[in-house]
Amino acid sequence: MAVPKSQILSLYKRLLREAKKFNTYNFRLYAVEKIQYEFHTNKSVTEPEKLSALMKKGQENLDMIKRQVMMGQMYGEGRLVIENPASDNKT
């Protein structure tokens, strides 16, 4: 069975939306970049089997990100100097 394009797009958007919630700066940026990269490199995949395997992997990663975002919200702490606009100090 073919995977409708709308489903792929929806998964992509949900992954990005969730990844942006990572508390840790480095994880957040990595996840967003990685999601964009994965969807971009697999853009031309059309074989239904390969496509549904990728969709499954994406869904599993979405669930994982959701859990890890919560972990970060409960146990993550602090911000990096470069996240803080006030830190553009003039030393």
Partner: peptide, 23 residues
């Protein structure tokens, strides 16, 4: 200050735990 944490550029000493690994 926790709101001014240093950038981490010491990957040979240790690395952060990947969220996928923690999961």
């Amino acid at each position: 200050d926790k709101e001014m944490r240093p950038l981490y550029l010491d990957a040979q000493a240790t690395t952060p735990l990947d969220p996928r690994v923690l999961d």
